[in-house]
Write a protein that binds this DNA or RNA. Sequence first.
DNA 1: CAACTTATACCGTTGAATGGAAGCAGAACG
DNA 2: CGTTCTGCTTCCATTCAACGGTATAAGTTG
Lengths: 250, 250
Amino acid sequence: MVDRVVRVIAAFPEGVSVLQLSELAERAGLPLTTAHRLVRQLAQHGLLEAGAGGSVRLGLRLWELVNRNSPTLALRQAAMPFMEDIQHVLNQNVNLAVLDGWEALFVERLSRRGSVANRAQIAGRLAVHVSSAGLALMSHQPRSVQTEYLEQFTDPAGKVTAEELRALLSEAAHQGYAQLAGVIDPDTWGIAVPVLDGRKLAVAALGVVVPLREVRLQALVPALQTAARGIGRRLGDAGTLTQFRSTESL
Amino acid sequence: MVDRVVRVIAAFPEGVSVLQLSELAERAGLPLTTAHRLVRQLAQHGLLEAGAGGSVRLGLRLWELVNRNSPTLALRQAAMPFMEDIQHVLNQNVNLAVLDGWEALFVERLSRRGSVANRAQIAGRLAVHVSSAGLALMSHQPRSVQTEYLEQFTDPAGKVTAEELRALLSEAAHQGYAQLAGVIDPDTWGIAVPVLDGRKLAVAALGVVVPLREVRLQALVPALQTAARGIGRRLGDAGTLTQFRSTESL
DNA sequence: CAACTTATACCGTTGAATGGAAGCAGAACG
DNA sequence: CGTTCTGCTTCCATTCAACGGTATAAGTTG
């Protein structure tokens, strides 16, 4: 039963890499016996690794398989040189995100030089309406997607209404970039631009996070846009990611 | 049946991220019908994504789950700053590998500045005896592991005997680093040093790949060793990776 | 237009997943 | 040093969900 397998793999809380069997069973909502059997099977195939005393973590083999054939590989490869350029020229944290559901999923990140490397945000998510990357992506989606998004939108924090959001998206669409006061750190700004593939579809967002006082949009935005165009050109027409967003056919 | 799931995920050839359903079925050794059902189920849970016309690729959600809880995360985070140091000081390709089975699995890599970013080697594997990283790792494994390795060793290419290999390992153990003529590119050298955790176990190897003529061991090795010690200190005693290599208990 | 390749739906059989009960460590406690 | 508790592991009879052959549809090629 594939559902169980997913439950086990997804049972690891963010950032936690090792779990106790009993805890894993509970988190996955599985009877201990079943979890035990499943873990053993998965471990035999290398998707999981089991240490002494019932400790469990994701397997190296799983990591290998996923990263070898990563759906984001082409995108990241195309983007990396340009992200390095931004990192060198602006000396700021640079990140790359794609749209998944109504959230921005961060797929790559470079820290500003000198700061401690922080891989934490990689594979992290932020809701569209609280991230400049999310806004940049959503503002360049087909109108049908935007409509659907706005219709279902409700801010759990109650800080922004659907109408305000519509205005934000419209503004971002016209300006060609999105900006937003930092969510995690209130003293920072996020600024992001869409990466358009050959068909003018926003397949990713390229963004920076900068300290509030250093806001120099005039310097940041053109650099980001230039880099984004470079990435888009490398991607070619094979939108790579977007074609799968379509209605599931299977 | 978990075996089928693994077969499907592992069916993607290295570097290929999208496959046709029929091709996937064949590669996985599954009846088309079964593959179809499995893919649909996996896609529902986000481990796979199915596009129009039976195209299949790994799911963003799978990528996210694996990279959020990556077994190599702690290691990579500890190593990144030092890898950047090496990259800046030596201006060479830097890579980080762990031992998995009798192969070195590359978990992180930085390209020399200026060269085109090449993420290809990440999640790649090289046999122990053809990679400096592999030799550096193996030469600092417990004697029992080395013995087991040497006993089963046979070079399919027939270029090196077990005895020569034993000498190589012994030399690497004494020198504290391993070097090897490039395998992929004959005009390059690989040089790697072990990263020892608090218990003096080699949990990783830090290496560079340099053009043949630029060989300056006197300059490279001390830098690598210094960085490796720095990484090891950051890892602390929690050997993180090695403790799982133990005999599977489940 | 015909012959083919490739994806999707259907469905009766069967074998493999299931999870409760019981056994076993090892640790914590008195 | 014995007791109890917690958490991992093994066993096994029941049952239910996976299986894959056949059939159909859709799309492609010669």
